[in-house]
Each structure stands twice: as structure tokens, then as C-alpha cells.
């Protein structure tokens, strides 16, 4: 049985390799199609996929921060038109013109910051990142900077431009998991400030502002206060000039040690 399976896998490999080239070439998506594409997508695809590219109950997010199996127009067209074998993804009766609009919309959802043209002066943005913006206090790029916030060395390929803009300008309803600010006093009188990397009813794992890990049991803590707000400031569009803000965006959007495959 195993032999047969291996044989069938081996024989199917060349066929797999040829698959994309056998697909009919599709005209490139027109970005202006993304607007009507969104409407068609939300009407037809959200039975399984989530609304506006979010994850659904039965199918993945098509616009989330992840690596995609189907990247080319041909792949996407094939999947929508004929379904995906072995999965719940069905074939679609939609006309090709509508499918192209859906593809344009999916592509617009997926583009990370580095894939999008961003106005602004990157060099100035870099100076702001390391200087006036004080981003380095919490974030690091290529080994330089603080630890309290996420490493931004690959932010250009990890996040969409809009997500970066929102993170710089909009207050979060609550700190994200792993970044909850905390201030506590231990039973032996030490004061620790930092972010909670993990916690349960019995222990806490804290990364301190002293850049050290503090691993504590709850009964070793005398007093503990959770900060309601995230450490990340949300007023960069106010404390920077319009040009400076755009320059910072331009700098961040180009941060990538690697390009997504």
C-alpha cells in the first residue's frame, strides 16, 4: 500500500509542476476592479470565508497576514472557477468578468506595505524612527532597539500599509496578548514594570522595561496593577508633521529582511 502511494505521488509530481502552466493565462487584475470586486466577494464568498477578507467559520481569511497557497491570477481564477479538489471550496457559476473583479479585490486585500507604492522620504523616516519618534525605545530593527514591542525588521512584508497607519494613529481597545503593560511589587519589595508575555492564575512571565525576563509565581507578588492602555502611542499623526508622518510610513513600509515567497 505504501509503495503504491509513493508511486502515485511520484507520478503525480510532474503533473503538479505543470499545473500552473496548463492554466489559461488571465489578464492582470485592474486595481479599480477591487471596489465592485468587494461587493461580489461579500455576496458570494462569505458563506465560508469571512466578510471583507477575514477568516470565516469554514474557510481561511483571504486577506489576512499569512502566506498564500494561491498567489497568481491563474491560480486564483482556477480555484474560484473550478473549486479546489479535496476541500469544501466549490466551483462557481459566476461569469469570468465577476471572477476577475473578485481577484482584484483579493489582491488588494493581500498586498503588504512593501508591495504598495508609498510616498515620502525613507531617509527622513529612518531619522524619525531612531530620533523624534522614539520608536527605538520599544521596537527594534535588525538587532538594534528595545524589546517591549514587536520586532519591526520585516514589518513591510508582514503588515499592510493601512495596518501600519492604523497602528500609528488609532488607540487599541485593549493591549494585545503578549504586550499587556504591568507594574508590580514583589513580596521582597522589588518593583517591576514591563509587559506580560504570558500569565495564568498561578504565574506570570514578564519582560521588564529593564529588558530582562521576570518569571514570577503569583504568591511572590504583593501588589499588581494592569495598565489599561497599550504602551504603543497612537498620536504619531499629531506629534509629527504631515510630511514627517508620511516619511515614517515610507521607511516602515520598506522594512524587509526577506521577501515573502
Amino acid at each position: 500500500m505504501r509503495l503504491i502511494l509513493m508511486f502515485s505521488l511520484l507520478t503525480s509530481l510532474p503533473a503538479l509542476a505543470q499545473l500552473p502552466s496548463r492554466r489559461r493565462a488571465q489578464p492582470p487584475p485592474r486595481m479599480e476592479d477591487a471596489v465592485p470586486g468587494r461587493e461580489i466577494y461579500n455576496r458570494n464568498c462569505t458563506i465560508c470565508h469571512g466578510i471583507d477578507g477575514a477568516a470565516g467559520d469554514r474557510a481561511p481569511a483571504l486577506g489576512a497576514q499569512r502566506r498564500y497557497l494561491r498567489r497568481t491570477e491563474g491560480d486564483l481564477h482556477e480555484a474560484i472557477k473550478n473549486g479546489i479538489g479535496g476541500t469544501l471550496m466549490p466551483s462557481s457559476p459566476l461569469p469570468d468578468s465577476d471572477i476577475r473583479k473578485i481577484i482584484a479585490y483579493i489582491r488588494s486585500l493581500r498586498a503588504t506595505a512593501i508591495d504598495v507604492a508609498v510616498a515620502g522620504n525613507q531617509r527622513n523616516g529612518e531619522a524619525i524612527f531612531y530620533g523624534k519618534g522614539a520608536c527605538l525605545d520599544c521596537h527594534r530593527i535588525r538587532g538594534r532597539g528595545g524589546l517591549a514591542g514587536p520586532d519591526l525588521s520585516d514589518i513591510g512584508v508582514e503588515r499592510k500599509l493601512e495596518d501600519i497607519r492604523v497602528a500609528l494613529t488609532t488607540e487599541k481597545p485593549a493591549p494585545s496578548r503578549g504586550y499587556q503593560p504591568v507594574r508590580l511589587t514583589t513580596s521582597d519589595g522589588r518593583t517591576i514594570e514591563g509587559v506580560i508575555k504570558n500569565e495564568n492564575n498561578f504565574s506570570l512571565q514578564i519582560l521588564g522595561v529593564d529588558q530582562k525576563l521576570h518569571l514570577l509565581l503569583r504568591d511572590e507578588i504583593q501588589e499588581l496593577a494592569y495598565e489599561g492602555n497599550a504602551l504603543m502611542p497612537s498620536d504619531f499623526d499629531k506629534k509629527l508633521s504631515k510630511e514627517e508622518f508620511q516619511d515614517l510610513l515610507a521607511f516602515l513600509s520598506r522594512q524587509a529582511r526577506r521577501r515573502a515567497q
Binding site: T46, I47, C48, G50, I51, A54, A55, G56, D57, R58, L88, P90, P173
Partner: peptide
């Protein structure tokens, strides 16, 4: 096949 009429996500609030 699922016959759900769409679904839900966690509220971000």
C-alpha cells in the same frame, strides 16, 4: 457542505 448563511468573528472591543 456547510449551510450556515455566514458566521461570526470575535468582537475586537
Amino acid at each position: 457542505f456547510p449551510y450556515m448563511g455566514t458566521g461570526y468573528v470575535e468582537s475586537p472591543d
